[in-house]
Design a protein around this nucleic acid. Structure first.
Lengths: 207, 207
DNA sequence: AAAATTACCATACAGATGTATGGTAATGTT
DNA sequence: AACATTACCATACATCTGTATGGTAATTTT
């Protein structure tokens, strides 16, 4: 039962996870202090004590960079979820990460990649099913035929990307849905990133 | 262009990856030395120098636990591949890890989990397709309905597991293949582990 | 109003850590 | 036969690292 974190504690925990994801190593107290502008390591020390008491991390006495992130005992790490995606009928997407939900830590990703849980069966012809997670890299330029996550009217959709001159076509796999055609410079839509992978957990469901 | 590693260097690199995967932190020189029975850290030091010169890792001067594993720049880490699996018609499986291939580091796994690349379409009814990777945890006890990897006559297959009394039934998803029924104590087969996830890379193929 | 919590600073210290340097032995290569 | 590579050991050292202890100030809870 994860207790609630204070603002500072959550930021430090996020930093730990981020560093471990992007650099592969957990920062030292000194590095955390530097990151947050603390003049002293003992400030960090006390935040870490709080995080440990609340069960989010485990510290190993006298070992450097030995902070273990406890959320991973279940093979999960918290990652920002931007919302759920439907391929056909857009669902609501939240403007910012609404919550830090436990999601599978899938593949090695750039620190700012994110996961989206797919809802609905409109991607089934692309072998992506309801409940699957798509891994989205926001730093790639989409190529024709790639699956992208697009924000349309504040809702996120997964579509196949095609650029034709000044127009961008977003195709569904399911032929029941007509392609969406928008101007490249349109402000009503935005490509959030390219789908680089799909992950499906089999641990619970029998399918 | 990764240069070849010596036996010891490869073992140390594997250890680095394993520790990072299972503990979340890279070991110190002292820990590596202890693991391999070295009486001195400088032995490790020199192996790490070799690994760095060959481009497999990057060391950050004077920072503890700061070894970065360079293979991950491409979001890949080497993992032993035991072979390819077919769900219907068993393929050859290699008795030991035949190679250390660059495979996506998928999900957080126990250090001894492994990946198998699925071949053939006999699992398609379970939404697992040719080219997908199944993530296998060898330390779980299969429950009825779970997908398991079984070794039958030296070949690996992915099947759905059902225990009925003293018999174990291995069902294919594809009804064209008849279930395999074996005695629980049979020596001709062995359950290698439980499929805990499926990963599919989307980066290259347009599908 | 008193007490607890949160957020920060400073100083001190033992021991862990990476690194430098020099050496031995076995094996393979030219 | 000379050289290079691999694999290991030992000693030494600056400094990084986690930890202990004590203190101030602001905010929240009781």
């Amino acid at each position: 039962m994860p207790q609630s974190l204070t603002e500072v504690q959550r930021k430090i925990l996020d930093f730990l996870i981020e560093e471990r994801t992007s650099r592969g190593i957990v920062p030292t107290l000194a590095e955390i202090a530097e990151k947050f502008g603390y003049r002293n390591r003992s400030t960090v020390q006390q935040h870490l004590e709080a995080l440990e008491k609340k069960g989010f991390i485990k510290r190993n006495p006298r070992l450097s960079r030995s902070i273990e992130i406890r959320l991973e005992d279940k093979y999960f790490i918290p990652r920002p979820v931007l919302g759920e995606v439907a391929a056909g009928n857009p669902l609501t997407i939240y403007p910012d990460a609404i919550d830090t939900v436990e999601l599978p830590s899938v593949a090695k990703m750039p620190g700012d990649s994110f996961l989206l849980r797919v809802k609905g069966d409109s991607m089934k012809d692309a072998y992506i099913f309801s409940g699957d997670f798509v891994i989205v890299n926001p730093n790639l330029n989409p190529v024709n035929g790639h699956f992208v996550v697009a924000i349309l009217d504040g809702a996120a959709v997964v579509k196949r990307f095609y650029k034709k001159g000044d127009q961008i076509e977003l195709h569904s796999e399911n032929p029941d849905y007509a392609p969406i055609i928008v101007d490249r410079k349109s402000h009503v839509f935005k490509i959030s990133g390219v789908v680089v992978g799909v992950y499906r957990s089999m641990e619970k469901k029998t399918l």
